[in-house]
Amino acid sequence: MTDGEPGEGHPDTRDVAGMADVASDRFDEAQLSETRSDETGFDEARLDQALSFLARRLSGDFTVDPFGFDEDLTESVLLPALRMLYRHWFRVEVRGMENVPSDGGALIVANHAGTFPLDSLMLQVAVHDEHPAARHLRTLAATLVFQLPVVSDVARKNGSTLACNEDVAELLSRDELVGVWPEGFKGIGKPFAERYQLQRFGRGGFVSAAIRSGAPIVPCSIVGAEETYPMVGNLGFLARLLRLPYAPITPTFPWLGPLGLVPLPSKWMIEFGEPLATDQYEVGAAEDPMVVFELTDNVRDVIQQTLHGLLEKRGSAFPQFSRSE
């Protein structure tokens, strides 16, 4: 049962709206390039959209789902903002998008890096913008995220929820595409010297969840996040004082103050591997540690191998600077 899901009562209208969204995205892009070429700088359709968005926001006329996901806000504000970073700052290249299913629940498992979870945000843009079904990636985040004001608010509205078994199961049963970073803080908070070396994959909770729901696991390798905020030092005492998992020192932070918060413009590549089916397992396999560990190691190996391949293909992390030399 998917009670409480927005638009549940009108599946038809919802589908139509979804298609219209995709269509309008395409339309937008076409129009954008047109306006650029004719240099009038005025675009009635965009203004129209902005006005109706504003009216919807001011009257509270939008829906949030049980996880707090605000599709209207994500599509109109959050994704466009992230898209700038995605296209122009990190110049993300995507491979293997055909491995991401167009419908039904699936679990995308990726490596985690870079001090600040830019990789989860970029993966969200990749899946939405480059997949033909323009799917929303529902990312799983640590409890810490939901303890912080503002961050917790934005995270929920952007489609994140707590990384716990109940939420994964619920999302998968609603046929959502779920993004998980099983390395957690061990991955994102590792020193720069250990870049692209996968950490332990938690306790395999994501594998149990996938087996229970019968959802496929799509391994995903992300290259580029490691160089955004290279962590060269960690102020352990400060982290303990602030109850944070780490207090990073990067080549620019805290030395340059707020400017140090600007991520380095590394070149990114994201590759999706072939999906691993989980529906062939028997009932109860999710509680069998051997099955879970085996599948976990399998996924981890695929990601690690692909990372090595991608690193070779990419070459320098900052090709824009090496070319000018």
């Binding site: 409480g4 549940e8 926001r57 009257s59 509270g60 949030v64 049980p66 707090g68």
Partner: peptide, 15 residues
Amino acid sequence: VAGDEFLGLSQALLR
């Protein structure tokens, strides 16, 4: 026992 759908606090205040 709860009704369908969710409301955000800010959304409720706007409504």
